[in-house]
Design a binder for these strands. Structure first.
Lengths: 168, 168
DNA sequence: ATAAACTTTCAAAATATTTTGAAAGTTTAA
DNA sequence: TTAAACTTTCAAAATATTTTGAAAGTTTAT
């Protein structure tokens, strides 16, 4: 397989994986492109390379910056903005974990905490089932939350080292 | 908060979380409803309870069975099919992990393995960057894969016990 | 101040996903 | 058989999401 084809494959695979996990396909593709490119790219180059419109490129890049996955820079003497991605895989994973925790897990934890407090008659199967499910899910969600917190603080080698102790 | 309102809130929250993670909102809501309901439910009751059509209820229930999250049963002397969800949170998490690994992670791993094999001149920054990114992502994906495998084999207490050793 | 270079916005269009519901299919009881 | 009870299918409709592109906005050099 030649490099351009391989790049294309990666961009497609990353886009597909993203869309399966609730991340806009184009956003994942722009990210993939920047991961594969040694130099910083302009909006123009990204539009060209992925055949997307200016508006789409602009919004997607802003989103990626909001996710902390992409940054922009200026080159001396040039007006254009150049974009580049952090290529450290561990940083990427941490950054995604951090954002999703904040955006998605935390709101759910808040609701679960409220629902855990709902009072009722334990002899009522309706209530008992509700209460058990909500309480159990809350516990698991808190476990996940703590694990993410640990991951966010951790160094890569320490984190995977701890994970791999599980295999022993 | 009263029970019916609390149930409603949970169903909405579960639906929202699902849709943010690439799982059809209705599917997550049907699952939530079954998690909260002590008795088995008929298609009719689910349609009624969530105000969805027969076709939607039918397809969603089939999907949920495909995910291994819901089963159907028959009551003696009755024609109707009754549906119920496994309410064990650990089983749910494992089942979801198992399916997503199979459906999404494995195909990506296969592509990454191929892309890792692409040959090129290491002095070419284009190639060097491609190769490093793909190799690094492949490593991380394999770590995730192994961790999931461990989780799938594990008992709940053992798994979380191992995770909590990380906090020490 | 002006204009060129560049970025942002957002309503409308395109696309993708989900849902509906009626018809077709299946199973069971009599 | 037959028909009632129930389930499945799927084309069309509804809805949601994404993308476009031209206009408006901003910045910089002169």
């Amino acid at each position: 397989m030649e490099l351009p084809e391989a790049k294309q494959k990666f961009i497609e695979a990353w886009g597909k994986l993203g869309s399966e996990w609730g991340i806009n396909r184009t956003m994942a593709q722009v990210h993939a492109l920047l991961l594969l490119t040694p130099t910083e790219l302009t909006t123009e180059e990204i539009m060209e390379s992925l055949s997307i419109s200016r508006g789409n490129a602009n919004m997607t890049l802003r989103d990626l910056m909001g996710w902390g996955l992409v940054e922009k820079m200026h080159k001396p003497g040039e007006r254009k903005e150049y974009f580049f991605a952090d290529k450290n895989t561990w940083n990427i994973a941490r950054q995604v974990a951090k954002e999703r925790r904040k955006r998605e897990l935390e709101p759910v934890l808040k609701i679960l905490d409220e629902l855990t407090k709902v009072k009722g008659n334990s002899n009522d199967p309706e209530f008992a089932t509700f209460n058990k499910s909500v309480t159990d899910i809350n516990k698991m969600a808190k476990n996940v939350d703590k694990t993410l917190e640990t991951m966010l603080k951790a160094e890569e080698s320490w984190f995977w080292g701890s994970i791999f102790k599980m295999f022993k």
